[in-house]
């Protein structure tokens, strides 16, 4: 059980670091890439919190989170080019 808590802590640190990069920039592309890492971090956190609560639906929710994260990444890429091309 202690491993799950360590994992949650480490991924939270990673999410905070990517939030810092998102706020700092310097370019728009850096912000979008940091946002991508944040989406992956959310997938990892959902998996770990699900295991911590021993929920039956953990992996279903992780699957849906991963797919929503993919849509988020595509939207970030699209927003970066202002919807052109």
């Amino acid at each position: 059980m202690i491993g799950i808590d360590i994992g949650i802590l480490l991924i939270t640190v990673a999410c905070l670091a990517s939030t810092y990069r998102m706020l700092r920039g310097p370019t728009e592309a850096d912000r979008a890439i940091a946002g991508d890492l944040l989406l992956f971090g959310v997938v990892g956190l959902v998996a770990l919190f699900g295991v911590r609560a021993a929920s039956t639906y953990t992996f279903d929710i992780v699957l849906i989170t991963a797919l929503v994260g993919f849509l988020g990444a595509l939207s970030l890429a699209r927003a970066l080019t202002r919807g052109k091309r």
Partner: peptide
């Protein structure tokens, strides 16, 4: 496995920084 995966996340965040 979870701790190794979380460490990969942390080093990726370090790389982003």
């Amino acid at each position: 496995l979870i701790v190794v995966g979380a460490l990969v996340f942390t080093t990726a965040a370090l790389g982003v920084l």
